[in-house]
Amino acid sequence: MWIYEKKLQYPVRVSTCNPRLAKYLIEQYGGADGELAAALRYLNQRYTLPPKVIGLLNDIGTEELAHLEMIATMVYKLTKDATPEQLKEAGLEPHYIDHERALFYHNAAGVPFTATYIQAKGDPITDLYEDIAAEEKARATYQWIINMSDDPDLNDGLRFLREREIIHAQRFREAVEILKEERNHKKVF
Protein backbone atom coordinates (compact mmCIF):
# COMPACT_ATOMS: atom_id res chain seq x y z
CA MET A 1 0.00 0.00 0.00
CA TRP A 2 1.08 3.54 -0.58
CA ILE A 3 0.60 6.79 1.25
CA TYR A 4 0.11 9.72 -1.08
CA GLU A 5 1.63 13.11 -0.44
CA LYS A 6 -0.18 15.77 -2.39
CA LYS A 7 2.90 17.52 -3.72
CA LEU A 8 5.55 16.92 -6.33
CA GLN A 9 8.95 15.48 -5.51
CA TYR A 10 10.56 18.56 -7.05
CA PRO A 11 8.86 21.78 -8.15
CA VAL A 12 7.93 21.78 -11.82
CA ARG A 13 8.24 25.16 -13.50
CA VAL A 14 7.69 25.84 -17.16
CA SER A 15 8.55 29.24 -18.64
CA THR A 16 6.94 29.10 -22.08
CA CYS A 17 3.92 27.50 -23.71
CA ASN A 18 5.84 25.07 -25.87
CA PRO A 19 3.90 22.01 -27.04
CA ARG A 20 6.92 20.76 -28.95
CA LEU A 21 8.75 20.14 -25.68
CA ALA A 22 5.72 18.17 -24.50
CA LYS A 23 6.13 15.96 -27.53
CA TYR A 24 9.72 15.18 -26.48
CA LEU A 25 8.85 14.74 -22.82
CA ILE A 26 6.12 12.21 -23.52
CA GLU A 27 9.01 9.82 -24.26
CA GLN A 28 9.74 9.76 -20.54
CA TYR A 29 6.03 9.24 -19.81
CA GLY A 30 5.06 6.30 -21.99
CA GLY A 31 8.32 5.41 -23.73
CA ALA A 32 10.42 2.25 -23.42
CA ASP A 33 12.82 3.81 -20.90
CA GLY A 34 10.28 6.14 -19.35
CA GLU A 35 9.16 6.50 -15.79
CA LEU A 36 6.09 4.30 -16.21
CA ALA A 37 8.18 1.45 -17.60
CA ALA A 38 10.65 1.91 -14.75
CA ALA A 39 8.02 1.90 -12.00
CA LEU A 40 6.22 -1.14 -13.39
CA ARG A 41 9.48 -3.00 -13.97
CA TYR A 42 10.85 -2.56 -10.45
CA LEU A 43 7.58 -2.96 -8.58
CA ASN A 44 6.98 -6.20 -10.46
CA GLN A 45 10.49 -7.65 -10.25
CA ARG A 46 10.74 -7.05 -6.51
CA TYR A 47 8.65 -10.13 -5.63
CA THR A 48 11.14 -12.63 -6.98
CA LEU A 49 14.45 -11.07 -5.92
CA PRO A 50 16.46 -12.07 -2.83
CA PRO A 51 15.03 -10.37 0.29
CA LYS A 52 18.17 -8.23 0.75
CA VAL A 53 17.39 -6.14 -2.34
CA ILE A 54 13.56 -6.20 -2.42
CA GLY A 55 13.37 -3.03 -0.35
CA LEU A 56 15.55 -1.19 -2.83
CA LEU A 57 13.30 -2.04 -5.77
CA ASN A 58 10.28 -1.13 -3.69
CA ASP A 59 11.70 2.30 -2.90
CA ILE A 60 13.01 3.09 -6.36
CA GLY A 61 9.82 1.81 -8.03
CA THR A 62 7.83 4.10 -5.77
CA GLU A 63 10.06 7.06 -6.56
CA GLU A 64 9.59 6.41 -10.28
CA LEU A 65 5.86 6.98 -9.76
CA ALA A 66 6.73 10.37 -8.27
CA HIS A 67 8.86 11.08 -11.35
CA LEU A 68 5.99 10.01 -13.60
CA GLU A 69 3.86 12.58 -11.86
CA MET A 70 6.45 15.29 -12.48
CA ILE A 71 6.64 14.44 -16.19
CA ALA A 72 2.85 14.46 -16.37
CA THR A 73 2.80 17.92 -14.79
CA MET A 74 5.39 19.19 -17.26
CA VAL A 75 3.50 17.84 -20.26
CA TYR A 76 0.22 19.18 -18.93
CA LYS A 77 1.62 22.67 -18.33
CA LEU A 78 3.25 22.76 -21.75
CA THR A 79 0.03 21.93 -23.58
CA LYS A 80 -2.93 23.02 -21.48
CA ASP A 81 -3.44 26.41 -23.12
CA ALA A 82 -1.96 25.66 -26.52
CA THR A 83 -4.29 26.34 -29.43
CA PRO A 84 -4.99 23.57 -31.94
CA GLU A 85 -2.89 25.62 -34.35
CA GLN A 86 0.10 25.58 -31.98
CA LEU A 87 -0.35 21.86 -31.37
CA LYS A 88 -0.38 21.35 -35.12
CA GLU A 89 2.85 23.28 -35.51
CA ALA A 90 4.41 21.07 -32.84
CA GLY A 91 3.43 17.96 -34.78
CA LEU A 92 0.88 16.96 -32.17
CA GLU A 93 -2.18 16.88 -34.41
CA PRO A 94 -2.41 13.05 -34.37
CA HIS A 95 -2.36 13.24 -30.57
CA TYR A 96 -5.00 15.95 -30.59
CA ILE A 97 -7.30 13.94 -32.86
CA ASP A 98 -7.11 10.90 -30.59
CA HIS A 99 -6.79 12.48 -27.14
CA GLU A 100 -7.42 16.23 -27.40
CA ARG A 101 -5.16 17.62 -24.64
CA ALA A 102 -5.34 14.52 -22.47
CA LEU A 103 -2.11 12.81 -21.56
CA PHE A 104 -1.58 9.33 -22.87
CA TYR A 105 1.04 6.65 -22.36
CA HIS A 106 2.87 6.70 -25.65
CA ASN A 107 6.37 7.62 -26.72
CA ALA A 108 7.62 10.68 -28.60
CA ALA A 109 6.74 8.99 -31.89
CA GLY A 110 3.17 8.21 -30.72
CA VAL A 111 3.69 4.46 -30.22
CA PRO A 112 1.47 3.35 -27.31
CA PHE A 113 3.03 1.90 -24.18
CA THR A 114 3.48 -1.85 -24.14
CA ALA A 115 4.52 -4.35 -21.46
CA THR A 116 7.11 -5.67 -23.90
CA TYR A 117 9.24 -2.66 -22.90
CA ILE A 118 9.95 -4.35 -19.58
CA GLN A 119 11.12 -7.76 -18.46
CA ALA A 120 11.16 -9.91 -15.37
CA LYS A 121 13.44 -12.88 -15.92
CA GLY A 122 13.43 -14.24 -12.38
CA ASP A 123 17.23 -14.38 -12.37
CA PRO A 124 18.40 -11.73 -9.89
CA ILE A 125 21.57 -10.67 -11.72
CA THR A 126 19.77 -10.55 -15.06
CA ASP A 127 16.99 -8.43 -13.65
CA LEU A 128 19.32 -6.04 -11.83
CA TYR A 129 21.48 -5.60 -14.92
CA GLU A 130 18.34 -4.72 -16.86
CA ASP A 131 17.50 -2.18 -14.16
CA ILE A 132 20.96 -0.60 -14.34
CA ALA A 133 20.65 -0.38 -18.12
CA ALA A 134 17.18 1.16 -17.79
CA GLU A 135 18.49 3.86 -15.47
CA GLU A 136 21.40 4.70 -17.76
CA LYS A 137 19.03 4.83 -20.75
CA ALA A 138 16.72 7.17 -18.87
CA ARG A 139 19.72 9.34 -17.92
CA ALA A 140 20.75 9.54 -21.56
CA THR A 141 17.19 10.35 -22.64
CA TYR A 142 17.10 13.26 -20.18
CA GLN A 143 20.36 14.54 -21.64
CA TRP A 144 18.92 14.48 -25.16
CA ILE A 145 15.76 16.25 -23.99
CA ILE A 146 17.86 18.90 -22.21
CA ASN A 147 19.85 19.36 -25.44
CA MET A 148 16.62 19.91 -27.38
CA SER A 149 14.95 22.15 -24.80
CA ASP A 150 15.42 25.91 -24.57
CA ASP A 151 13.35 26.29 -21.41
CA PRO A 152 15.69 26.91 -18.43
CA ASP A 153 12.98 26.31 -15.81
CA LEU A 154 12.00 23.02 -17.37
CA ASN A 155 15.65 21.99 -17.72
CA ASP A 156 16.09 22.59 -14.01
CA GLY A 157 13.46 19.94 -13.27
CA LEU A 158 14.92 17.62 -15.90
CA ARG A 159 18.36 17.96 -14.33
CA PHE A 160 16.92 16.88 -11.00
CA LEU A 161 15.31 13.82 -12.60
CA ARG A 162 18.54 12.96 -14.39
CA GLU A 163 20.49 13.18 -11.14
CA ARG A 164 18.06 10.71 -9.59
CA GLU A 165 18.74 8.28 -12.45
CA ILE A 166 22.44 8.40 -11.56
CA ILE A 167 21.65 7.61 -7.93
CA HIS A 168 19.30 4.78 -8.88
CA ALA A 169 21.91 3.23 -11.16
CA GLN A 170 24.42 3.48 -8.30
CA ARG A 171 22.05 1.70 -5.90
CA PHE A 172 21.29 -1.06 -8.41
CA ARG A 173 25.02 -1.55 -8.90
CA GLU A 174 25.37 -1.85 -5.13
CA ALA A 175 22.53 -4.39 -5.11
CA VAL A 176 24.56 -6.51 -7.53
CA GLU A 177 27.55 -6.24 -5.20
CA ILE A 178 25.37 -7.35 -2.28
CA LEU A 179 24.20 -10.42 -4.21
CA LYS A 180 27.78 -11.25 -5.20
CA GLU A 181 28.52 -11.55 -1.47
CA GLU A 182 32.18 -10.69 -1.95
CA ARG A 183 32.15 -7.26 -0.39
CA ASN A 184 33.94 -7.87 2.90
CA HIS A 185 36.21 -10.63 1.72
CA LYS A 186 39.84 -10.27 0.86
CA LYS A 187 39.98 -11.12 -2.81
CA VAL A 188 42.60 -13.40 -4.28
CA PHE A 189 41.38 -14.59 -7.65
Binding site: Y142, I146, N147, N155, R159, R162, E163, I166, I167, Q170
Partner: peptide
Protein backbone atom coordinates in the same frame (compact mmCIF):
# COMPACT_ATOMS: atom_id res chain seq x y z
CA UNK B 1 27.31 11.65 -7.09
CA UNK B 2 26.32 15.19 -8.04
CA UNK B 3 27.00 15.65 -11.72
CA UNK B 4 24.52 18.07 -13.32
CA UNK B 5 24.09 18.04 -17.09
CA UNK B 6 23.79 21.21 -19.11
CA UNK B 7 23.07 21.27 -22.79
CA UNK B 8 26.13 22.32 -24.79
CA UNK B 9 23.69 24.61 -26.58
Amino acid sequence: FYDPYYSPY
